[in-house]
Design a protein around this nucleic acid. Structure first.
Lengths: 168, 168
DNA sequence: GGCTGTCATCTTAGTACTAAGATTATAGCG
DNA sequence: CGCTATAATCTTAGTACTAAGATGACAGCC
C-alpha cells in the first residue's frame, strides 16, 4: 500500500449533453431521496429487531394472508435462497410458519402465526406513521404527483429491463 | 420445520387514513422505481467487474479529483470501514491509489491512477447513456419535475433524521 | 404410462458492506 | 507545554442477502 504525497486538484471532464445531464441529476437525486427515506423509516424497525426485508415479508403476509414462498419472493423482490433464509429466521422467531399446499407438494405457504399477527397489529401503525412523517417534505398533492411520475418511470424501466424479471 | 395444510384467505385489515395511504403508496412506488432503475443501470457496470459502490467511488474521483477518504465516504454514504475495504479493492486492481496529505498525517487522499482514469474515460459515457435510457419513461420536463420533488423530499427527510448524518 | 422439460423450494459457498472498536494524530484550552 | 476531547483511518467480527446449483414434484406430450 504505497501512498504518495500530492496536492489535489479538480480535473476537467467533458460536459454531458443537456438531456443526459438531466437524467444524471434525476438519478442522483432519486437515489439520495430513497436512501434518506429508507434510513428514516428503518429506524422504527430496528427497535423490533427486524430488517427492512423481514418486515416486508411480515407486511405482505399481514395484508394478503398466506402466500406461497414464490409469491412472497416476487412481491418483495428477493432471491429464492433469500426467501428461504428469511422465512427460516422469522419461523425461528415464531412469527411465521410454513404450511403445506394441498394442490402442489413442492410448494409451501408462508403465514403469520398468532404471535406474528399480534406483532404486526402493534407495529404497523407506527411504521405507517413513520412513513407519513418521512414524506412530510411534500404536500399531499405533491406526494400524488411524485407517485404518478415515479410509477411511470418505474414501469418503463422495468418493462425494458430483463433484470427485473430475473431473481433467483 | 412443521408445515401445516390450510387454504389461504385474505385477511381484513384496518384501512389507513387517506393522508397516510398516500404516503404509503409513495413509499412503495419510490422503492420500486429506485430498484428498477438501479438494476437497469447496474447491468452496465457488472461487465466491468464493478459494484455500484465501487463505481461511485471511481466516479467521485473522476469528477472531483483526489479526495480524502472521509470525503469520499461522506459523498457516497458508506461506513468508514467500508471506504477502507473498497479503496483497498480498487487499489489492488490498480485503479485507485492512496496519497499522503501534507497537512494531516492521519489523512489519506484517494486518487485515480492512469489506469483508473482510462477506465472511467471508457465506461462513463456508456454509464451515462444507460442512465439516460433508464429515465426515458419520463420526458425531459417530467424528469426535471421529478427531480425537484424528490430533492425537496430527500432534503426534508434528511434534515429531520439524525441517521443520515451518522455513518461510521 | 413413460418421458422430458419446467417449476418450487432448499442448500451451499460466497461477498459486499456494517458496526464496533483500536490506533495515531490534531485542535483547542488553560 | 500538557492535557483532553475529537478526528481520520484502519481492523475485526459479523450479517444480510445473492448466485449457482441440487432435489423432488408437476405439466404436457406422445
Amino acid at each position: 500500500m504505497t501512498a504518495t504525497a500530492t496536492v489535489p486538484q479538480t480535473p476537467k471532464r467533458p460536459t454531458p449533453e443537456p438531456a443526459t445531464a438531466t437524467a444524471l441529476k434525476l438519478f442522483v437525486v432519486l437515489a439520495r431521496a430513497q436512501q434518506a427515506i429508507s434510513e428514516r423509516v428503518e429506524g422504527s424497525l430496528v427497535s423490533h429487531g427486524l430488517t427492512h426485508t423481514e418486515f416486508a415479508i411480515l407486511e405482505a403476509l399481514y395484508h394478503k394472508g398466506p402466500l406461497l414462498l414464490g409469491e412472497v419472493q416476487r412481491k418483495i423482490l428477493v432471491s429464492s435462497g433469500g426467501i428461504t433464509f428469511l422465512v427460516d429466521k422469522l419461523a425461528n422467531r415464531g412469527l411465521v410458519e410454513r404450511r403445506l399446499c394441498p394442490s402442489d407438494r413442492r410448494a409451501r405457504y408462508a403465514a403469520l402465526t398468532r404471535k406474528g399477527e399480534a406483532l404486526m397489529a402493534q407495529i404497523f401503525p407506527a411504521h405507517a406513521d413513520a412513513i407519513r412523517e418521512a414524506m412530510a417534505g411534500l404536500s399531499r398533492a405533491e406526494q400524488k404527483q411524485a407517485t404518478a411520475l415515479l410509477k411511470q418511470l418505474g414501469l418503463a424501466a422495468s418493462a425494458a429491463s430483463p433484470e427485473s424479471a430475473k431473481r433467483g
